[in-house]
Structures are given as C-alpha cells and as structure tokens.
Design a protein around this nucleic acid. Sequence first.
DNA 1: CTCTGTGAACATTTTCACAGCT
DNA 2: AGCTGTGAAAATGTTCACAGAG
Lengths: 203, 203
Amino acid sequence: MYLRALIGLAEDGTTTCSSEELAATAGVNSAKLRKDLSYLGSYGTRGVGYDVEYLRYQIAREIGVTHDWPVVIVGIGNLGHALANYSGFRSRGFRVVALLDADPTRHDEVVAGLDVRSFEDLESIVSDNDVSIGVIATPAVAAQAVADRMVAAGITSILNFAPSVLAVPEGVGVRKVDLSIELQILAYHEQRKAVAPGSEDAS
Amino acid sequence: MYLRALIGLAEDGTTTCSSEELAATAGVNSAKLRKDLSYLGSYGTRGVGYDVEYLRYQIAREIGVTHDWPVVIVGIGNLGHALANYSGFRSRGFRVVALLDADPTRHDEVVAGLDVRSFEDLESIVSDNDVSIGVIATPAVAAQAVADRMVAAGITSILNFAPSVLAVPEGVGVRKVDLSIELQILAYHEQRKAVAPGSEDAS
DNA sequence: CTCTGTGAACATTTTCACAGCT
DNA sequence: AGCTGTGAAAATGTTCACAGAG
C-alpha cells in the first residue's frame, strides 16, 4: 500500500513527503505509518520527512519486487481472462509466463498475447521458467487438484480465487481472494444502516 | 466464510457438525469459531454440535443475505466483464442490475445477458432499482469521479477494484480489493524463504 | 521549530481452559 | 461423555505523546 502510494506521489512530481501526507495517501494513521516504516529501518529525515524515491526503493527491495516474478495462471475463464490482461501485475513486477486450462477447446485461444496451453504442461513450464507463484482461477471443485499439482511441480506460493479452502503442505504460502465475501461485508453494513441508523464507520 | 463452509457441508449431505469440523472446513481455530458464533446467539446444542441448515439460515439472516441485493458495476473492461459473469454473486444473494461504462463504443455490447449502458444512466438506474451497492472496475484515474457520482446518486456501499484510495462522506462504506497487493505479499514471503529458509507459515 | 522514531498506553483479536447443558 | 458457550489470559495491533535529530 505504501509502495503504491509512493509511486503515485512520484508520478505527481513529489520528491519529499511527511508521514502525514503519505499516511493520508495510503489511507492510514500517520503514527501507524511511521511505526510500520520504522521496522524497515530509518529511512526518513527528522524535521523534513521521507525522500519519495529513496523510500520507494527501500520498500520495493524489502518486499522483493525489484526483480520480476514469473507467474502461471490456471483456469482461463472470465476471471482468468481478466487476470491475464490485468496491467497491474506487469507494472508491479509480475510476469505472466503461461496460461493453462484443462479444457482442450480453449487451447486455440490467444489471451493477452499468450496462447492458452494444456494443464499437462505445468511441470515443464514451472521448471523452464523457474516459476514459484501460481494463480488459481478455476471453479471451486478443481482448485484443490490444481493446487496439489502446482505444489508437486515446485510452486511454493498460490493465489487462490476459487471459493474453497486449500490444503497445502507446510512451507507453501496461500492467499485467498473471495469476491463475494467482500460484497457480503458491504451488504451486512447496509443492513445495519437500515436497521439502526447512526454510528457507522467508512472503512 | 462460515456461511460458505456451511453451504459446502449442506451440499455434501451433512446435517450436523461440531465446531471442530466447521472450523476445519472454514480454515480457522475451533475456539475462534465458537466465540464468533456466540455473538450471534446460542444456535448450537451442547454435546451435539450445530445443525447445518439452522445455523446457515441464522448467519444468512444476520449478515443480510436472505434477500437479494441489487448491484451496479461501472467499468466494463476485462475485470468488469469477469465480475458481470461471476456466478458467485448471483448465488450469494447479489443481482447485477446494470453494467455501465463511460466509453460509448462499448454500449453496443451485451455482457452476461445485460447490455452495457451509459454512465449517464446511473442516477435513474439507482433510483428505479433501489440500488445501494456499487462496484468500481474502472482505471484508477476514473475511480474517484465514479465514486462521487455514485454517492450523489444515493449509493451507500462501494466495492473498489481500482488501485486508488477513495474519499467518501461519512456513512458510505468502501471496501477495496487490490489484486497486485496479494501477489506482492506472496512474493515477499517467497523472498524471505529464499533468504532465510526455516520458519514459515502457510496462511 | 518541524517531523521522525519509538517506548508506553490502549484497544482489539485470538486462544486457552473449563463450567455447565444435553 | 461430548461439545458448546464464555470468562480470563495471552498475543497482537494501533494510537498516543514526546525525546531528540536535523
């Protein structure tokens, strides 16, 4: 979040910023921002603030986005399509090296300049491109099998868009994005507003 | 999460479950699950567990997904496309009533059985369908303007996929989904593994 | 005099552990 | 006997408030 905020400031031509400004841009409290950044080291200047470019580089280095990470996407339905075309990945240091789908009728398609390949090619793609991050955009029923195969092929981080909890071995990282849960959270607050109008936060 | 886990159990024919089982399905600790559910009331039976259907209904009622929520999606690029077609919304009580895009060349298109309409129609659509939830899938630069217009039209909850922090009035709920941040978190853990192999969690 | 970096205070979340219901 | 519901404890996260650097 801070990295993105810094990139935004840099694009606006800002060279220096205070914790207050950066916190506002990122949408957090300035004390929290300073505490968070303090864990990385002392990259600010007292009485002045932070140098945007310098801090940006330090954060990028810390979180490991100074070099490209090759990524494979499995499941080229609507969501896989969108992910393959999502420019935010490329601009943030991720390079989609392959799109895989179990459905052979999709293997003709070219999406985002890559042709959709067979899921059978997973192992060779992973070893050839040294891939350690996989994205699952399949239906829920297929997700666990895809994850197992990814892990067997040597992938150690999985971003899961399927609405299912994945069981993976120790040492494999999984993050889940569930679009409908986000909407349900909004609906919950909507309902509360309707029932008891008054105190409500905007987070 | 618990609701989804319960739906999964119900589909498998399970009629009763313990906090241990449900927690495992949802991927959390059983004590946490019991504490969470206790805030809703005492819907379990000591010595037995929870009735799947009963608990499912109680949670659905609590979070407000017993009736349909009309939703509008603004920005029908790749992501908007995917969201419009995402079956998870419909099955979880959300009904996409309109797809809007500022680009007139897209107004011919029919996506997911709905035709893409002009962003100018926002106000009438919101009032005609009593919409209180809006989804922003536009580029970052357009997001704030779209949000402002949504709020003016009467929308009080926004799901934002654009990588920008939205400023909204008190009382308007915003949730943000940033796909590249999730990948960055995985990359961070990958880098840590490479540097200092050993203790690593699989969350 | 301004703004960072940080110990200490405060707040929230998670887990433990067990009383008590069925 | 088995499992929920829940106080109390532990862990974690956030904010305050100020010493001290520039």
